[in-house]
């Protein structure tokens, strides 16, 4: 099966020949890689957008598997919020706003002070992209992007609040690296259902919502603020608690949600 080895030996082994072969192999390979990257980029972008929209629809409770995502998404209204004041920003197009890029920007991003950075966010954009769901012209749900460190890596998700800016409708994590079969409960429907109708803020306006160790006991006076954890995945649960505390706290969506509660949600 094999051919006799290297009869051509001396001819291929010169320095010039070696450099020439290396150059041509690099040239062909790099043009192959570059053209694949460029040709496929529009499709990849469209996929990423479609996926983000699907996640938003899911957490809004509007997702229908048989219907076109882009068509369903028309009922969602993206808005930009200035997190420091909690007011809507009108002069930026939500379609073109990229929170990840903005966070890196020295002007548009802000460092999260270490003492309140429980979720290890480190840096976030000064403005945030939120999504409103309207029903009969009234805002019925507010969807907020959330992120924070779990056991292994940063978990990214959305939380949907009812129009009162306090009651939780749903929560979802669309990207996380938690342990398969253990920490990945955060993306499972059964656990997500536990969040329904839980409350975020106590009377003083502090975010109280947390994932507890084990089950919430039925007589617990704080049961409204507590969600069952999963044994063996305490650190993942703690990660969720911390990211909720940060994002719904004063440095996160706190000011915005207070505006909503005062009736400024339009």
């Amino acid at each position: 099966m094999s051919e006799p080895a290297k009869e051509q030996g001396s001819k291929t082994e010169t320095v010039a020949r070696t450099l020439l072969v290396a150059f041509f192999v690099s040239l062909v390979c790099s043009s192959l890689v570059a053209s694949a990257a460029i040709l496929l980029q529009p499709r990849q972008r469209a996929n990423a957008i479609l996926d983000a929209r699907r996640n938003i629809l899911e957490v809004a409770g509007l997702f229908e598997p048989d219907r076109d995502v882009n068509q369903l998404y028309e009922s969602i209204e993206p808005r930009i919020v200035d997190l420091a004041t909690g007011a809507y920003v009108e002069d930026i197009d939500p379609e073109s706003f990229d929170p990840v890029e903005a966070a890196k920007d020295p002007e548009l991003g802000v460092e999260v002070p270490a003492d309140i950075d429980v979720a290890r966010v480190r840096r976030r954009a000064k403005r945030a992209l939120v999504y409103l769901v309207r029903k009969d012209d009234e805002v019925s749900k507010i969807i907020l992007p959330i992120s924070g460190y779990g056991l292994w890596s940063t978990m990214y998700g959305f939380v949907a609040l009812e129009a009162d800016g306090n009651t939780i409708a749903d929560i979802t994590f669309y990207a996380h690296g938690e342990t398969p079969g253990v920490g990945d409960f955060i993306a499972k429907p059964a656990w997500r259902a536990l969040w329904r109708d839980k409350r975020v803020f106590d009377e003083s306006g502090t975010p109280k919502i947390e994932v507890v160790k084990g089950r919430v006991s039925p007589g617990d006076p704080l049961a409204d603020y507590r969600v069952d954890g999963v044994s063996g995945a305490t650190l993942t649960g703690n990660g969720v608690t911390k990211l909720m505390q940060y994002w719904l706290g004063d440095h996160g969506y706190g000011p915005y949600l207070r505006n909503i509660q005062r009736g400024g949600g339009t």
């Binding site: 291929t12 082994e13 010169t14 070696t18 072969v21 290396a22 192999v25």
Partner: peptide
């Protein structure tokens, strides 16, 4: 037939 054996592994990796 044209691949010099001194760089064959890195060329294969590329």
């Amino acid at each position: 037939h044209v691949l010099p054996s001194s760089i064959r592994i890195i060329v294969q990796m590329t």
